[in-house]
């Protein structure tokens, strides 16, 4: 299982949640699999998906999912400390851990060796930390967790690599922003 297959299962589990999508290939895959106004695609600021999602969650009551990667969370590991401090009930951080920096050419990342982000999340004060390794457990696990109060940190372990034919996102930043802001407002 690669990130693409894991992402497809995750997206099957969501309904009206606001979703912050990590920069690069992850956003491109999500756009291709299930574009919707509730998706905020990052075109820059690597590392900040979990933080943007945390801000959206703290600012309003609707459920928020930050879809992030192991390399990005490692770049901004303080985010786990802040999530463990604030603990918003409406927040889920999903870390797709493919042990690589995929968007920059699949260089080996820190989780390929000693780093265990799920342990950092637990040590930061997040009580609901779940690790998923099996493809056929992703959709049901995420759907179940979304029914319960968070915060949740979910680590989905997968392999590096991505399918051919994933293209750049054809809408620009202001359109991404404006339709997300409208969607966030309309659900409030």
């Amino acid at each position: 299982m690669r990130r693409y297959e894991a992402t497809r299962e995750i997206l099957n589990a969501i309904s009206d949640e606001l979703v912050v999508c990590n920069i690069g290939h992850p956003s491109q895959e999500i756009f291709q699999l299930k574009d919707r106004p509730e998706n905020f695609y990052m075109f820059g600021s690597m590392g900040l998906s979990s933080s943007i999602g945390l801000g959206v969650a703290m600012a309003q009551d609707r459920k928020v999912i930050a879809l992030d990667g192991d390399g990005s969370v490692t770049m901004n590991m303080g985010t786990l400390a802040t999530i463990g401090l604030v603990r918003p009930k409406n927040y889920m951080l999903i870390i797709i851990d493919n042990k690589a920096y995929g968007s920059t050419g699949f260089q080996r990342s820190f989780t390929a060796d000693n780093l265990r982000l799920e342990e950092v999340a637990t040590a930061s004060g997040v009580e609901n930390v779940v690790v998923i390794t099996e493809h056929d457990e992703i959709e049901s696990t995420i759907a179940r967790l979304l029914k319960a109060d968070g915060p949740h940190v979910v680590v989905v372990k997968c392999e590096p690599g991505m399918p051919d034919g994933i293209g750049v996102i054809p809408i620009d930043g202001m359109e991404v922003r404006n339709r997300f802001m409208d969607a966030a407002k309309s659900g409030a």
Partner: peptide
């Protein structure tokens, strides 16, 4: 760290 803070604040603005 300040960078994390800018991410959180950006999310807050997106949510109104």
């Amino acid at each position: 760290r300040e960078e994390e803070g800018i991410g959180i604040l950006a999310g807050a603005y997106l949510a109104g």
